[in-house]
Design a protein around this nucleic acid. Structure first.
Lengths: 190, 190
DNA sequence: ATTCTTGTACAAAACGTTCTGTATACCTTG
DNA sequence: CAAGGTATACAGAACGTTTTGTACAAGAAT
């Protein structure tokens, strides 16, 4: 309870690594036991069934995302378009664990797509926050989608921008995010 | 008995459906035989190994994407930012087969992530086309990423916009795509 | 000395692959 | 053109391995 079982975390980390490196199909209890240092018995104790393992993996991704988002939201709370800027920052956060992030979602989509329902709900729940009506709402959605695109294209290994270009891109994205809150700019294509 | 093998197409269609509905883990030869009408022997004939089946699935997605893109490029060739607009239209093409599209990629990422290398190369190859240098290049990239985001969020079932909102969003995206080619517009937030 | 955690052994099912069989289209050759 | 052979397209069963889930014993912690 105090510390949520060392072995459990170890298993989850290893599972994420396996999924990331060899795909969700390679995520078997045997491989997990071999690479995590925990034997099958230990694994079975913490995750009696594979379903629960997957559920834990997805929840882990979800929690991490929410925590990162909450951090950025708190840090940019003074900002009028705080949520959107925070979202951009969350999607583009480039820490060493970044690639580990979606392994839960990817294994879920491979084994039981319905496990993503929680993530879907979470994603949709935040959409109304961005819609203020009018053309600005669509610009906000575009910024959001661009952040998502950046996130997934990087996660899937499709995009790998040099750091400088990446930073400039994010800066531009954030600028656009801010611009959605100031519709009195000379731009009005509607 | 098919000209270019009717059964082969049938198998591939069914495989895509299975992946889409139940995840890539459910894509087994047995399920495939049960749901495609082709027996295991027949399947084995066309796809001696699962690797080849996956390869065919990925290639299929790739070919479809390329063909759709080529169509839109041809249709918008007169446009100065033809490629980008065409890309937006490709990513947002909403035909009945849309959801079938990435099943190959999803099963690849589940079974053998390296099968995506071809797609990755294809994706990166088009990036330089959009980069004209300067701030406009980043705006173009943002539009591209937004299109990708729309595509994947819809594919993964995270986003499901009402038709009207969807059309307006795409229109705005296309407008932004065109704007990247005319940087002398009154909008210059850089 | 319970309770919590990990290790070992095993049963049943599922999976990919291989093998053999069959029917039909195509091509050759006399 | 007719006979014979070959390649193609598909069917069905079988094999050996892998994987999941379960049962139970052993060790650590409190």
């Amino acid at each position: 309870m105090g510390r949520t079982s060392n072995a459990r975390q170890q298993v989850l980390d290893t599972a994420a690594r396996i999924v990331r490196e060899h795909g969700a199909a390679a995520l078997t209890f045997e491989e997990l036991a071999a690479k995590s240092g925990v034997t099958r018995g230990g694994i079975t104790y913490h995750f009696p069934t594979k379903d629960e393992l997957l559920r834990a993996l997805v929840e882990r991704d979800q929690v991490r995302w929410s925590e990162t988002l909450a951090q950025h939201v708190a840090a940019a709370s003074a900002d009028p378009v705080g949520p959107l800027v925070a979202y951009v920052r969350t999607a583009s956060t480039h820490d060493p664990e970044r690639r580990r992030f979606v392994s839960g979602m990817l294994s879920a989509v491979a084994h039981q797509p319905e496990l993503l329902d929680g993530c879907r709900a979470l994603y949709r729940a935040q959409l109304p926050d961005l819609e203020r009506g009018g053309a600005a709402a669509f610009d906000a959605l575009i910024v959001l989608l661009a952040a998502d695109g950046l996130f997934w294209m990087e996660q899937l290994g499709f995009l790998d921008l040099p750091d400088s270009a990446r930073e400039e891109l994010i800066a531009r994205l954030e600028a656009l995010a801010r611009a959605t809150a100031t519709p009195r700019s000379p731009d009005s294509t509607a």
